[in-house]
Simulated assay, not measured.
Amino acid sequence: MTVRSYQELVDSATAGLKQKRGIMHDTYGLDRAKGWDYDVKHAQPNFVIWGDEEQPLLYAETLEVGTFLPAHSTWKWGWCNPSIPSEQQEKLAVLRELAEITGQELFRLDQPFVISREDASGLLAMAVQHLDAQGGYAAKIVNMDGQSLDAHIAYTAVAGPG
């Protein structure tokens, strides 16, 4: 795959993710969103978006595709991240197939690698498309070491309250 065709694939996946976000926004009234909670380690659904008076607007089951560490501009795949539960790692392992599809070895790298924030967003979009997920989000969190990072999560199942 040429660099141009790879970029076209990323652009197409990014447009698809933007469309999915728009549908979720309209379906669940996310214009009323006031915040969210995310817990990778515990039972699904593990992502909640809430509105006024902390009333849930959306519940999502997620997979943490990867993490972007802004301080070092590095990406680490969720399928090889020991802080991600093993059952999620197993589900995420299919993302390595993107190396064959795109010819890009970065989909097989099991160590953090340097990448821009924009390219990290492209990896999330491609993962959402490959996983046939309902959407995705880059959640800004602080890890147990006190480092700020972006947890790039794919919504595998989404539901409203009740």
Score class of each variant (00 low, 15 high):
residue 1 M to W: 08
residue 1 M to R: 09
residue 2 T to S: 10
residue 3 V to T: 10
residue 4 R to P: 02
residue 7 Q to V: 13
residue 7 Q to C: 01
residue 13 A to G: 00
residue 14 T to D: 06
residue 15 A to K: 02
residue 18 K to N: 05
residue 21 R to G: 04
residue 22 G to A: 06
residue 22 G to Y: 04
residue 23 I to K: 01
residue 26 D to N: 02
residue 26 D to K: 15
residue 26 D to P: 07
residue 27 T to F: 12
residue 27 T to S: 09
residue 29 G to N: 03
residue 29 G to I: 00
residue 31 D to N: 11
residue 37 D to R: 15
residue 40 V to K: 15
residue 40 V to W: 14
residue 40 V to R: 15
residue 49 I to V: 11
residue 50 W to I: 09
residue 51 G to T: 11
residue 51 G to S: 03
residue 53 E to I: 09
residue 54 E to K: 12
residue 54 E to L: 11
residue 58 L to W: 00
residue 63 L to C: 14
residue 64 E to A: 15
residue 65 V to R: 06
residue 66 G to S: 06
residue 71 A to V: 13
residue 71 A to F: 13
residue 72 H to C: 15
residue 72 H to G: 11
residue 72 H to V: 15
residue 73 S to H: 12
residue 77 W to A: 07
residue 78 G to I: 07
residue 78 G to K: 09
residue 81 N to G: 03
residue 82 P to I: 09
residue 83 S to V: 01
residue 87 E to I: 11
residue 87 E to L: 11
residue 102 T to Q: 06
residue 104 Q to I: 07
residue 108 R to F: 02
residue 109 L to N: 05
residue 110 D to T: 12
residue 113 F to V: 01
residue 113 F to R: 01
residue 116 S to R: 08
residue 116 S to L: 07
residue 123 L to T: 08
residue 124 L to P: 08
residue 127 A to M: 01
residue 128 V to P: 02
residue 135 G to K: 00
residue 151 A to R: 09
residue 151 A to I: 05
residue 155 Y to W: 08
residue 156 T to L: 00
residue 159 A to Q: 10
residue 160 G to R: 02
residue 161 P to M: 06
residue 162 G to I: 15
